[in-house]
Write a protein that binds this DNA or RNA. Structure first.
Lengths: 143, 143
DNA sequence: TGGCTATCGTTAGCCTGCAAACAATCGGCT
DNA sequence: AGCCGATTGTTTGCAGGCTAACGATAGCCA
C-alpha cells in the first residue's frame, strides 16, 4: 500500500469559497431590498448599533461591528455625507469622536429595520426554518 | 391585546453579520497560514482554477470564481506582477485574453494546495467533522 | 455585403477591508 | 511637575468587489 492519493482539491467544496458566495448573495439581496436611497449593509449595521446603544466613539462603534479603525472612519464619513450621523469631539476626553444619529436617520430607521428583516429572510429563504436556525448556530461557533 | 411588540432586531443574530464574521476570520487564517510570500485568497482561487482547467479567458476564469470583470482584471494584473501568470490575446478570437500559469506558479502550487487544506481545516476547527460537513451542505444551499 | 446583436474587456467611481506608521491625548507613576 | 505607556484616531498603500458606461470584435442573418 503506497501513499494514498491526495484527494482532489475542489475549490467549490472549500468553506472559504462557500462563505464568500453566500455572503456575496446576501449583499446583493441587501442592496436590492434596501434600494438606492437606503444605507449599505455596513452603514445600516452602524446606524442600528447607534440606535440601540446611543452615541458611541468611533472606536467603540468599530468594536461592536468588527471593523478596524480605517474602515470605521470611511463608513462614518459616508454616513455624515448622507446626513445620517454627526461627529463631535468628546469634551471630557479629547481623543474621542462621539458619533450620533441625526433626527433624519432616527425617523428612517424603523422602516430600514423592517427591510433588514426581509433581507435576512430572503438570505435564508432556500432553507427551512429549522435549517436556518442550524446554520446560524453553526456560523456563530465559527466566529 | 395590542400589537405584539416587534422582536428586537439583534444585529449579532442576523445571518449577514454571521456570514461576514465567519468569512473575516477565514481570511485572517488564510493570510496567516499562506504567509507573505503566498497568494491571497482570491489569487489562490484563480491559480488553482487555472491549474485544474488549463488556460482560460479572463471571462471564463471570472465565471468559475464568481468574480465580475473589473475584479478579475485586478486579480490577474496582480498575478502577472507577481510572475505567476501570463496573458495573451487569443489568435482565434481577438476579444479573448488567455490567462495561463507560469512554471513558477506550477512549481509552487502543490505546496500552496497543502496550505489551503490546512486553512480549510483551521476555519472549521471549532466544529467537529459532522458539523463541518453540515455547515458546508447548508452554505451550498444558500448560494 | 452590410448591419445587428452578443460577447469580451476596459475605465471610472464608489464602498469595504487590512496592515503599518504616525500624531494627539490621557492616565498613572515617580 | 514630568515622564511613560496605553488608547484613539488619521494617513497611506494595497486588495477585493460592485455598477455603469464604453470600445472592440465576432457571428449571424437579411
Amino acid at each position: 500500500m503506497g501513499t494514498p492519493p491526495a484527494p482532489e482539491y475542489q475549490l467549490e467544496d472549500q468553506v472559504g469559497h462557500l462563505l464568500r458566495r453566500a455572503y456575496q448573495r446576501h449583499l446583493a439581496l441587501f442592496q436590492g431590498i434596501m434600494g438606492e436611497d437606503g444605507p449599505t449593509s455596513m452603514q445600516f449595521a452602524a446606524l442600528v448599533t447607534l440606535w440601540r446603544q446611543g452615541p458611541l466613539s468611533q472606536n467603540l462603534l468599530g468594536r461592536g461591528l468588527a471593523m478596524d479603525p480605517p474602515t470605521v472612519k470611511g463608513v462614518v464619513a459616508r454616513l455624515m455625507a448622507r446626513g445620517w450621523v454627526t461627529r463631535h469631539r468628546d469634551p471630557a476626553d479629547a481623543r474621542l469622536l462621539r458619533v450620533a444619529l441625526t433626527p433624519a436617520a432616527e425617523a428612517a430607521l424603523p422602516g430600514w429595520v423592517d427591510k433588514a428583516r426581509a433581507i435576512t429572510a430572503a438570505t435564508l429563504a432556500p432553507l427551512g426554518p429549522a435549517d436556518a436556525a442550524r446554520v446560524a448556530a453553526l456560523l456563530r461557533r465559527m466566529e
